[in-house]
Structure formats: C-alpha cells, structure tokens
Amino acid sequence: MPKRTMALMTQGAVAAQKDAEIESLREALGNRSEHGITKIPVDQIVPLQISRTIEGMLELIRQPRKYFDPEELDLLVESIHSKGLNEPVAVRPLEDGKYGLLDGERRWRAHQILGIPQIDAIVFNSLTDDGALEWALATDTLKASVSPLEQTLSVINLLSLRLDTDESGVRKILNALNNHEKGKTKIDVPEEHNTIIYGVLGSLGLKLGGLVARLPLLDLPEYLNQRVTEGELSPTNALLISRAPEELHDFLISEGGKLSKQKLRELIEQRKNDAAFQADTQIEPVVLKKRLKSALRKVDKTDAWDDPKKSKRLKQLLQQIERLL
C-alpha cells in the first residue's frame, strides 16, 4: 500500500471547511438588516442589468435566464397580499436614477402584479458592475431554486467580466485550463487567468471540472433547455438526450425524462440497436440467417431449458418459427 498523501488526508477537512465558508456567507447575506431599509417606488426598479465595453463596443451582458415557476409566483403573490413582505429586496442605484435589482426579482414582480406602489428595499450604494454580479450570483448560488443552467451562465458572465473577454473566450480558457489540469496538454495558462478563475470558483465553492462539465448545457437546443429550466429534465439527462440521434429526442423526452442517468443511457443504447436491427433486416437477410444459425448452435449448451419460464417461452417461439418456415 502506498503512503497516504496529504491530499487524501485533508480531503474531509477541506470539504467541511468549504461548507463552513458557505454557511458564513449565507449568514452574512441573512444579516443585511443592519443596513437601513427604505421604501422605493416599484416602477423605479429594473432587473439586474450589467453593461460593459469590449474593444470600444457597448455590450449588454446576457442575463441569467431566470425562470419563475408560475405556481410559486402565485403563492408568493398570495402571501405578500395577506401578510406583507417578509424580506426586503436588495438594489443598487443606477446612473439614470433608477435602481438595479440585486436580489428579489420574484418579490418585485409580485408587487407589480399586486399593484403595490412601493417596496421595502436595502440600497447598496457603492457596488461596481462585477461587484453587483458577484453579489447577485452569490445570493443565487446559495438558493436551491437556481437551476444549474442559470448558475453556469452566471459564473461565465462573472468570469467574462473579470477576464475581460466574451463568453466563448471564457469557455476556451476554462477548457484549456481543465485539460491542462488533467495533464492532457502542456500549454501554459497565464498565471493571472489562473488566479482569477480559481478565485471566483473558490469564493463560490465550485470546482473547475464540475463547471467545465456543465458548459455543454449552454448549447442545449431551446426545447431541451426549457424542460431543464422547468424541472422536467435533469441537466445530465438533457445532455444525454442532446447527444442521441435527433429523431429519438421526442421519444426520449417523454419516456426517459425521469429515468436515472444509467437507465436513460441503457434506453438510448437499446433504441439505437433497435434502429440498427431494423436497418439490418432491410438490407441484409443474409445477416439474419447467420444470426439465427448461430443462435441455434447454443441449443445444447444453454441451461435456459431448466428454467420453467424460459423453457415455456422457448417452446412458444419455436412454434412460431416452425409456422413461419
């Protein structure tokens, strides 16, 4: 047995430490009441919006695609209507005099629906663009309701700000770094990229490999995307389905959406084989004859005859074959 490495010995402690850090961040976010709460006109608030210039061009950073379950929104509307707002929303002042939402889009929408003119808000005055995004992301990441897709997109956006490049640039750097880390390639990733990426991942408690594995989520076709967002498909299953032949997608979504990863894989394989088998019969009857002969060669060797069920089934099949031939 080789000696235990430090990596192995520290594994548990490192994980527990990360947990504790997230816990304290959560707490810090929960303690926002030490900031003053003010009332702000609902129509003066706009959703999280971050713009920046790349090579002289003004660009609006893609919004995290937020999906709000209509039923949950109804419940929230109902609750605010009967009991009022529990937790204030968080905003920052924008240059045009409006307020950009950092946290609480659902609560804000509920106020719009109810026609309440003002909302309780905590105003954060000195937040930069990436500070705002990081803040929003940190609150989001800590909430169970954010989908992996939204989370991935938010992290890419944040990295795009920090690394000063666009989405595809960030993805290139992440992939290069991941390959480098796995020892597949030897290219040098610039030290500052390294520091930025690990800094962001560390502060959010994410792993490089995990993030890279989720990147293909951003390329899902819209119909799969929507099902992930609505919680009908798990991200893993959506990825599996997207890689299967396109003509199987409808069938796989309806039959395989709720299956485990392994079962879905089996289903896809089986369907592919069925398709291949059908193709066989059309093109090559010779192959079929061969398969039948080779199957019959096993008649003496198999112990299926000892199993009453299998034996009965064989008898039925034999009768069918005899009739056909």
């Binding site: 235990r4 010995m9 520290t10 548990g12 402690a13 527990a16 430490q17 947990d19 504790a20 816990e23």
Partner: peptide, 17 residues
C-alpha cells in the same frame, strides 16, 4: 498525528454546524 489532525479539523467544522 497528521491524519488524525485533519480528521479533528474536519470534525471542528462539522460540529460547529
């Protein structure tokens, strides 16, 4: 000692929670 020490540190974080 080191192995047990990191288990202790793991425990400290877990048990605080």
């Amino acid at each position: 000692d080191v192995d047990a020490g990191f288990k202790l540190i793991n425990w400290i974080y877990d048990w605080q929670k």
